[in-house]
Computed example of a mutant assay.
Amino acid sequence: MTDTTHDIVDTAVAAGAFTALVAAVTAAGLVETLKGKGPFTVFAPSDAAFAALPAGTVDDLVRSGNKAKLTAILLLHVLPGKVMAADVAGQNLDPATVGGATVHVDGTDGVSIDGAKVVTADIACTNGVIHVIDAVLLPKI
């Protein structure tokens, strides 16, 4: 799937499989950022990935008092620049996210990020690329 006419947010909305992610991005106030020039690489958890979190986790995170925590979690899913799956094939990398944290990208057997597998790669958008992942990334404690 390639969408070279829509930005990352509009592509995620149109796909219909990222309602929890779009709601979280909206609650965190990151819509305008992700509609910006970029380019960005977004590792987008599917709705099934959000559903796999412990009960109440998403509801708790989107409460207004948890905006900083929600923002930190969401920024773990965004890398600066446009990184396609082929760019990491055969490599182990530890890039910094746009939030400043480091994540581990393993391209030696498919692609995974901090253990979450990329299930759909290289959804090109006007301001970057989306890779669908099967889990929500959480900060390392």
Rank of each mutant, 00 (worst) to 15 (best):
L79M: 03
G56W: 02
A24K: 02
F40K: 09
F50Q: 00
V78I: 07
V13K: 06
V132E: 14
V129H: 12
I141F: 10
A27I: 07
T4W: 14
T126F: 08
V132M: 03
T33R: 14
A101L: 01
V78G: 05
V105E: 10
A121P: 03
T120F: 11
P80I: 01
L53H: 11
P54I: 08
F50A: 02
A20I: 02
L53D: 10
V119G: 01
C125Y: 14
A28R: 06
D106K: 04
F18A: 07
G110C: 06
I8N: 11
T4K: 14
M1G: 07
I73G: 07
H104V: 04
P39R: 13
A68C: 01
F43T: 01
F43S: 02
T2R: 15
A72H: 04
P39E: 13
D109K: 11
A124W: 00
L75W: 02
L138K: 10
D122V: 07
A89G: 05
I141T: 12
K117C: 02
G56Q: 07
V111W: 08
A89R: 12
T33W: 10
V119S: 06
I123M: 14
I130F: 03
V22S: 14
H6M: 14
G107L: 11
A116P: 03
G115C: 02
G65H: 12
I141G: 15
A85P: 05
A15G: 13
A28D: 04
L93S: 13
D122S: 06
L79H: 01
T126Y: 13
G110M: 02
A68Y: 05
G90N: 08
L70C: 09
A72C: 00
G38Y: 13
D134P: 00
V9Q: 08
P139T: 13
F18V: 02
V98P: 09
L75I: 03
F40V: 05
